[in-house]
Design a protein around this nucleic acid. Structure first.
Length: 427
RNA sequence: GGGGGGAUACCAGAGCGGUCAAAUGGGACGGACUGUAAAUCCGUUGCUUCGGCUACGAAGGUUCGAAUCCUUCUCCCCCCA
């Protein structure tokens, strides 16, 4: 398998330094991608980079996943219009551990010569003094060169300015590349297209300091066909951590992909071979309403990020919530089964005795639970016909609900819009 | 150091003494249509016990009345040195 060719047909390749492909075709090479621990979980936006590393390893090369214990302390200005707040060290440490654990799931760390390896740039930066850094690193790169970078230029032209700290980021990342090149024979750094500048600072530094040669490859920034940002939902980013985004929500996110995007995503986020993908597309073309692509996409990613069992559960929940099964179906289930079915759905608990006295819809959804952030908003949405309880549209915000509405004398199923379900448990 | 401009809701951006909870656009959310798609159209977009309450960078002041005028402060941008 030819790594670059693979990225190319999948539409993932953005930019590649001349000579990179030739080098990789010569035999096993080492390459890396860095992940800064800005949160304690990766999100779907990171998935492209993860896939790139996976392809890299599958093509017989040795992938390094770098976690940015050091770079995370500085803050990458790329793509950011304003200075960011620094994270405290203990938050960073916590994030680092979480991100490491997540990354470990995707690569093979025990496959002989091209086993994946995890490195943390804090290890080589922690004892690097400021004076040593400006003498050994800063001296080789001119400020003129650094200012010409897009990430810097934009901030200098903009009206928010940029701190020296963020300005330095590219040198810190550049040194990472040098370090891995020198000590681990790592000749290629990969990343999203916004990383091109930072990566090239690295290859430039390697050239100027040691006269060495290193390469760069970037992948397309994933965008939706309508130009909006990929990986966001109503409730924010879509995380890989099941505690932040449940497997059901994760599955739903992919299932809701538009037709146009699904064609691109199936290539980027799954490992299906070309003919398999083309067959799926053909099938989708004939009967788009069955959403073949979305289902295949959602299934594959959910299984790889979570598990087969999580996928099965997500499917069961989805089939019930969006299928033709009536709400009465719940009567046939015991409490455990109901909770399982709604496992991925946000749930709230209300006191049964309070419910016995009757609670208005507005109070129930905005006071006793957090389906809505305020009663006003709950009322407005109810007025607009956007809220249901037990699949029945709520007429007015003053409608009263009591224990007689409970399913299995325990549950209420609330819906905000068509797609957002909430389980209210009375106990 | 000197001079000038600015800070308004999620964002952009009007308003420049009352009729302003604040135009307009975007975004977001909801509805109709549909395939849990796209496009389109429609509605909502500070909180509320529906009496009001809190809001236009912060704090004071003038006024019957301030987002709008005055004072001080904070922050940002531009030009000159």
């Amino acid at each position: 398998m030819n790594f670059v060719e693979e990225l190319r047909w999948r539409g993932m390749l953005h930019d590649i330094m001349p000579g990179t492909e030739e080098l990789l075709n010569k035999g096993m090479a080492s390459g890396y991608i860095g992940f800064d621990p800005t949160a304690d979980s990766l999100h779907v936006g990171h998935l492209t980079q993860i896939m790139t590393l996976i392809h890299f390893q599958r093509a017989g090369h040795k992938p390094y996943a770098l976690v940015g214990g050091a770079t995370g302390m500085v803050g990458d200005p790329s793509g950011k219009s304003a200075e960011r707040n620094l994270l405290s060290e203990d938050v960073l440490q916590h994030n680092l551990e979480s991100v490491k654990t997540q990354l470990q799931k995707f690569l093979d760390f025990n496959t002989g010569a091209n086993s994946a390896q995890m490195v943390n740039n804090y290890d080589w930066f922690k004892n690097f003094t400021f004076l040593d850094f400006i003498r050994d690193v800063g001296k080789h790169i001119t400020v003129n060169y650094m200012m010409a970078k897009d990430s810097v230029k934009k901030r200098l032209e903009g009206d928010t300015g940029m701190s020296f700290t963020e300005f330095t980021y590219q040198l810190v990342q550049g040194y990472d590349f040098y370090y891995l090149w020198k000590n681990n024979n790592c000749v290629l750094q990969m990343g999203g297209s916004d990383q091109w500048g930072n990566i090239v600072t690295g290859t430039e530094f390697i050239r100027r300091k040691d006269g060495g040669e290193a390469f760069a490859l970037t992948t397309q920034l994933i965008k939706k066909a309508d130009g909006t940002k990929f990986g966001k939902t109503e409730s924010g980013a879509v995380w890989l951590d099941p505690a932040r985004t449940t497997p059901y929500q994760f599955y739903q996110f992919w299932l809701n992909t538009t037709d146009v995007d699904a064609k691109a995503y199936i290539r980027i986020f799954t490992l299906f071979e070309r003919d398999v993908i083309e067959a799926l597309e053909a099938e989708h073309e004939v009967a788009p309403h069955t959403r073949t692509l979305q289902k295949a996409l959602a299934k594959d990613i959910t299984i790889r990020v979570h598990s087969e069992a999580d996928y099965e559960k997500a499917i069961k929940s989805s089939e019930f919530l969006f299928g033709s099964t009536g709400i009465e179906f719940l009567n046939e289930l015991n409490d455990e089964e109901v909770l399982g079915l709604f496992g991925g759905v946000p749930n709230f608990t209300v006191s049964k005795s309070e419910l016995a006295d009757g609670i208005t819809a507005a109070d129930l959804l905005a006071g006793k639970t957090a389906v809505f952030p305020s009663k006003t908003e709950a009322k407005k949405t109810i007025q607009g016909g956007g809220v249901s309880i037990n699949r029945n549209k709520i007429g007015t915000a003053d409608d009263v609900y009591n224990t007689s509405h409970l399913i299995n004398s325990k549950f209420l199923v609330a819906q905000k819009g068509k797609k957002n379900y909430f389980l209210i448990i009375a106990e």
